[in-house]
Amino acid sequence: MITTYLFYFLSFLAIMFGLMVVLSKNPIHSVLYLVLTFFAIAGHYVLLNAQFLAAVHIIVYAGAIMVLFLFVIMLLNLNKETEPHKSLWLKASAAVASGSLLIVFVGALKNATNIPATNVANPNVGLIENLGKVLFSDFLLPFEVASILLLGAMVGAVMLGKKSIK
């Protein structure tokens, strides 16, 4: 019973903080609300028995990516005064468009057949031992390609960040 309440609570937090990311005027507040959203999603991962992924999620997203965002925002000195705004007409059409998208999603979900939770889920699926075995046997080539991608991203970021590209 407690898991049900926990699910509702975490979902509420994730959706509310997600909306606050979009709606808050100050970019710094947006970043902080996004961190809270990520924590709510990490709570969902724990609820889904993916403990290792929850830890990695917090380290990578809340620890690394969000710090990068915060660093750039403070470096560029963005604040409430410099924040550009769309016209009311464009904002309304954006809300209508994304609302229609949500209606499409919900409509597609309405007739979906529910997956019966017959096989009582193996609680070891999300543990590091299991994931490591799968990652280094079935997904060895994608793993290496991901390392090349990260190297390329690193070189690209350094290239773009240089003062002047001659």
């Binding site: 994730a14 959706i15 997600g18 990311v21 970019p27 969902h44 994304s98 949500l102 999603f105």
Partner: peptide, 22 residues
């Protein structure tokens, strides 16, 4: 449903804001 709502919030953010960081 939760994922769909979160995804829609992301789409809303892309359409709603003009700041590239947001």
């Amino acid at each position: 449903l939760l994922s769909a709502v979160l995804f829609t919030i992301g789409v809303l953010g892309v359409l709603f804001r003009r700041n590239a960081i947001i």
